[in-house]
Amino acid sequence: MAAATESAAAIMIDLDELGSRLGEVESYLRLEEKRSRVGELEQMSAAPGFWDDGDRARSLMEELARCRDDVQLVEGAHGRLADARAALELADEMEGEEAAELIAEAAATATALARDIDEMELSSWFTGEFDHGDAIVTIKPGQGGLEAQDWTFMLFKMYMKYCARRGWKVTINDCPAAEVIGIDRATITVQGKDAFGMLRAEAGVHRLVRISPTDDKKRRQTTFAGVEVIPVLPDDIDIEIAADDIRVDVYHASGPGGQGVNTTDSAVRITHLPTGIVVTCQNERSQIQNKAACMQILKARLYELELEKREEALDEIRGPKHAIGFGNQIRSYVLYPYQMVKDLRSGVETGNVEAVLDDGDLDPFVVGYHRWATGKAEAAAPASDDIDA
Rank of each mutant, 00 (worst) to 15 (best):
K161A: 15
E202K: 02
L155F: 10
G145P: 06
M158N: 04
A177F: 06
F153H: 07
N173T: 02
S124N: 07
M198Q: 02
T127P: 12
S123Y: 10
G145L: 00
D134Y: 04
A177K: 05
G145R: 04
I136L: 14
T189Q: 12
F130Q: 04
Y159N: 00
A195L: 08
W151V: 02
C175A: 15
F156C: 12
E129R: 15
I136K: 06
R200I: 00
K161T: 01
V137K: 00
L199S: 07
F126H: 09
K169N: 15
A177E: 15
H132A: 14
T152C: 15
A201T: 08
I188S: 03
Q143N: 08
A177M: 11
K140T: 15
T171P: 03
L155N: 09
Q143H: 07
I188D: 05
Q143T: 11
M154A: 08
P176I: 01
A177C: 11
P176K: 03
F156N: 12
Q191F: 12
T138C: 13
I136V: 15
Q143G: 00
L199H: 13
A186E: 03
F196E: 03
D184T: 03
Q149H: 11
A135S: 11
F130A: 02
C163K: 03
I136A: 02
D150R: 05
T187F: 06
Q143P: 01
K161Y: 09
S123R: 07
G142L: 01
A164M: 09
M160S: 09
G182Y: 03
M198T: 10
G182R: 00
M198W: 08
G145I: 00
I139R: 01
G144S: 01
I139M: 10
D150E: 04
I172L: 14
R166V: 02
